[in-house]
Simulated assay, not measured.
Amino acid sequence: METHETPFRAALRTGLVLGLMMMVIVYLIYFIEASLLASNWFGLAVLILYFALLLFFGFKYRKEVGGYLPFGSAFQFSFFTLIVAGIIGLVGNLLLYMVIDPALPQVLADQQMENTMEIIESFGAADAMSTEQINEMKQGFLDAYSVGGQLKAFGFALIIYAILALIIGAIIKRKEPTQSY
């Protein structure tokens, strides 16, 4: 009798690999140029990489369990993989922002503020903003790097993970062919 790995067990293994890979990438970018962590391009690149790697691992898991995977199992695998990877990323980010470089949140908030002001100026709306609004926006960027801000971002990420897992699950599922007589 052949035993198959459950979606949860496979997701734990895959999530650990994906989370550690992403943490290494974040730390490499930090050591190369920390301000890139606040770049919109970095966030988009990470999302694309997550999607591609999750597809790769999802197809690999489907092959491991015999080539067929119902949508429910595909969704569970994807969602729990993202949760495990997200928790590892959360811990890695908290270590980076609170222990390794406590000054980094200020650098990233300043970079985000600069990026945002460039966008606002390109639309010609910079003059319409008061100093109070600008300071409030800057404080919001800084608060996002606090423990509470990171936990709140993780909570929001769970919604994104569910949507992404639905998409990935729909892509990697494969029904067993039924025999009709």
Rank of each mutant, 00 (worst) to 15 (best):
residue 36 L to Y: 10
residue 52 A to Q: 04
residue 89 G to Q: 10
residue 68 Y to I: 03
residue 69 L to A: 02
residue 59 F to C: 12
residue 32 I to H: 09
residue 78 S to G: 07
residue 90 L to D: 06
residue 58 G to M: 07
residue 33 E to S: 09
residue 104 L to V: 13
residue 83 I to F: 00
residue 96 L to W: 09
residue 81 T to R: 09
residue 76 Q to L: 15
residue 82 L to C: 11
residue 82 L to V: 06
residue 39 S to I: 04
residue 86 G to F: 07
residue 36 L to H: 07
residue 107 V to K: 07
residue 45 A to H: 05
residue 67 G to R: 15
residue 103 A to M: 08
residue 93 N to R: 06
residue 77 F to I: 11
residue 104 L to F: 12
residue 105 P to D: 11
residue 51 F to C: 02
residue 59 F to A: 10
residue 66 G to P: 12
residue 49 L to E: 01
residue 49 L to A: 15
residue 71 F to Q: 08
residue 98 M to V: 15
residue 92 G to Y: 13
residue 62 R to H: 05
residue 40 N to L: 03
residue 69 L to N: 01
residue 111 Q to Y: 08
residue 26 V to H: 13
residue 66 G to I: 14
residue 103 A to R: 14
residue 107 V to G: 01
residue 46 V to N: 06
residue 51 F to A: 08
residue 58 G to H: 02
residue 48 I to S: 00
residue 43 G to H: 03
residue 83 I to C: 01
residue 97 Y to Q: 04
residue 112 Q to I: 00
residue 35 S to L: 11
residue 112 Q to P: 01
residue 70 P to H: 02
residue 91 V to E: 05
residue 90 L to W: 01
residue 58 G to W: 02
residue 77 F to M: 01
residue 89 G to M: 07
residue 106 Q to Y: 04
residue 52 A to E: 05
residue 53 L to G: 14
residue 95 L to H: 06
residue 81 T to S: 13
residue 103 A to P: 00
residue 71 F to M: 14
residue 57 F to S: 01
residue 77 F to W: 04
residue 68 Y to N: 12
residue 101 D to L: 07
residue 74 A to E: 10
residue 84 V to W: 00
residue 37 L to M: 06
residue 92 G to V: 07
residue 71 F to I: 08
residue 108 L to D: 04
residue 56 F to K: 15
residue 45 A to C: 03
residue 100 I to M: 04
residue 35 S to N: 15
residue 75 F to K: 05
residue 84 V to I: 15
residue 75 F to H: 08
residue 111 Q to G: 13
residue 61 Y to S: 11
residue 26 V to R: 13
residue 66 G to A: 14
residue 83 I to Q: 02
residue 39 S to L: 08
residue 60 K to W: 12
residue 80 F to K: 03
residue 31 F to T: 14
residue 96 L to N: 13
residue 44 L to D: 12
residue 31 F to A: 11
residue 108 L to F: 06
residue 25 I to R: 00
residue 106 Q to T: 14
residue 43 G to F: 08
residue 48 I to R: 00
residue 29 I to F: 05
residue 28 L to H: 05
residue 49 L to H: 01
residue 69 L to Q: 12
residue 74 A to T: 12
residue 110 D to F: 11
residue 111 Q to D: 11
residue 101 D to G: 04
residue 70 P to A: 08
residue 109 A to V: 10
residue 60 K to R: 15
residue 66 G to T: 07
residue 85 A to T: 03
residue 41 W to I: 08
residue 44 L to Q: 14
residue 68 Y to G: 02
residue 55 L to G: 13
residue 94 L to S: 01
residue 82 L to H: 11
residue 103 A to F: 03
residue 76 Q to R: 06
residue 41 W to H: 11
